[in-house]
Amino acid sequence: MNPAEELAEVKRREAEFRLKTVQEFLAFGARDREQRRQIDALNDELGERNSYIHRLHGEREDFVRREQAAFADVEAFTHLLATAEAEAAAARAELARLRAPRGWRRWFASKSAAARDPAALPAGDGPAPAASFVAVPAGDFIYYLHTPPFRLYRAASFTLRGWALPRDARPVTGVRVRIGGREFIGETGLEEPGVLAQHGPQPANPRPGFSVTFATPPGRHHLSLEAQLDHRDWLAVLTTPIWCQVPPSP
């Protein structure tokens, strides 16, 4: 091989080496761009999923707000109904008194009994006979019941679950339901992460959930859901008349 041929061979080999380098660079660049494209696509997908999750969170909050508003409406209507029924019962009693001879004596006697025990409800068609019911003062709570008590009770027992936060930020140390002269102690300190997310940290009540199971004997009763604050006072979270039917035969 003469020097000119040798030089040509060197040039050829050098060019082939550069060609290989360029092709590897192009292949690497193509792979890099493909990976970037995939990363971009995944980021886009992630963004869309995050938007969807954000929308679902918003919808869930909206549903919770609407559910709580409906809960408040049902509670208000139940009290209106109870008041109307008490007024109707009083009107019927008045009517009976006017129709019956010497009716005024019995009317006077019932009025006297009511004056002695204001918590006692009228008998007969009235909301609830509860001679042993002694009302506790109403407390000021933010609360919500996952199993609303405003219903017709058809089972032998019922579990009331929900959460309650005293507005004065005292700790809730107990919860009970009183119904039909009986008292049912419930469980407190249950996790409610959604409540903390909505209302912020609650140092006195980091787990504001509770659960109380109580018996529902047939008839009309006065239900009082009560919370004990700081191991001392029992305060009413909610009082409402309820109606319980005889459980169906098995």
Partner: peptide
């Protein structure tokens, strides 16, 4: 940008 430096004739 797809091509490397100092590589072509």
């Amino acid at each position: 940008g797809e091509f490397p430096d100092d590589s072509l004739d």
